[in-house]
Amino acid sequence: MTPATLNDYVLISAVLFAIGFFGVLLRRNTLVIFMSLELMLVASTLALVAFSRFNGTMDGNVFVFFILTVAAAEVAVGLAIIVALFRKRHTVQVDELNTLKN
C-alpha cells in the first residue's frame, strides 16, 4: 500500500533536487557544495523508486542500487581531492580557488 500518488513523489523529488541545486549555486564552501550534490543524487533515486513502484517494474530499483555504488565511490574520490586541495592551498572556499582564472 502506498499512501500517495506518483505525482506527489515526483513533486517531492523535484523540490529536493531544486534545493540541492540552490545549495550548489549559493554556497561557497566546497564541502557544503558537495553535500548539496549528494542531495540532488538522492532526489533522483527517490523519483526512480517511485516510478518503479507505480509501474510494477524492477529496473528503477536496480538503477538505485548502481547509483548508490557510484555515489559512494564519488564521495571517496571527491573528498580526497578536497583534502589534497586544502593541503596545497589552505582554503576550500571556491572564490579563492581562482588559479586558472588569472
Binding site: 500500500m1 502506498t2 507505480f54 510494477g56 524492477m58
Partner: peptide
Amino acid sequence: PNLAAAVG
C-alpha cells in the same frame, strides 16, 4: 499502485 505488483 494497488494494481502494480510490489516487486521491490
